[in-house]
């Protein structure tokens, strides 16, 4: 048996409303810790060598024949490549149908007063720029720790989270990846428990 030594390559805190672009090499493990509980972490994955080969929420859902993500979920790209696998999860389930908040969708959902509130897609564009990720490259993301029940009658709602302080989720990269992360600033629905809080990113590779 060969044991490959890995070191802690990443240990940082992302404040509420801030984001990060993380390069994760093939085989690397990225852990996202919900430090204070009920904090949505909007996340996109891209093949680091070809950003058009990117995470596809709905291909991922179809391939696993289930809506929610948890341990064992294979994160699939638009070309049906496996980008990463969720290899540990102390929360239990994560959303990938609800998308990211934007200033424009906030106006539609909550009203004109939200027009200039900070939103995830602002963070995605800010941190994605350094990797060439612009508006056309943004797609439907994962919302780690977010609870969006979907029902047999075709209903969908945003509800209080299932997460709690210290819960974490870990993904193992199946190829070299960019992880584009927005620590969600939303204050108009319960996705962050009405109070966005910091998260911790840990990486081993």
């Amino acid at each position: 048996m060969t044991i490959t030594a890995t070191t802690v390559a990443l240990d940082s805190v992302v404040e509420a409303g801030d984001g990060a672009l993380v390069s994760v090499p093939a085989g690397g493990r990225l852990r996202i810790v919900d430090l204070h509980g009920n904090q949505a972490v909007d996340t996109l994955f891209y093949d680091a060598h070809d950003i058009d080969n990117r995470y596809s929420a709905f291909d991922t859902i179809r391939e696993q024949r289930a809506v929610f993500l948890t341990t064992g979920s294979r994160l699939i790209s638009t070309r049906l490549d496996e980008l990463a696998v969720i290899t540990d999860d102390t929360c239990g389930r994560h959303d990938t149908v609800g998308g990211a908040c934007s200033q424009e969708s906030n106006v539609i959902r909550y009203g004109e007063f939200t027009r200039h509130q900070h939103a995830c897609r602002q963070t995605f564009l800010r941190y994605g720029a350094q990797a060439g990720i612009g508006q056309r490259q943004l797609t439907h993301n994962i919302n780690f720790f977010m609870n969006v029940p979907v029902t047999s009658t075709g209903g969908l709602t945003f509800e209080d989270g299932l997460s709690a302080p210290g819960k974490y989720v870990e993904v193992t990269a199946s190829r070299d990846l960019f992880a584009l992360i927005s620590n969600c600033p939303q204050v108009n629905n319960p996705c962050n428990g009405w109070d966005p809080t910091p998260i911790q990113l840990l990486g081993w590779w």
């Binding site: 929420a57 149908v97 609800g98 998308g99 969708s105 439907h140 209903g155 969908l156």
Partner: peptide, 19 residues
Amino acid sequence: LDRLNIPDTLKSQMSARIK
């Protein structure tokens, strides 16, 4: 540039299907 966005369509109308 502005494309159909399924998540925004669903969450703003509380539906998991198109009807």
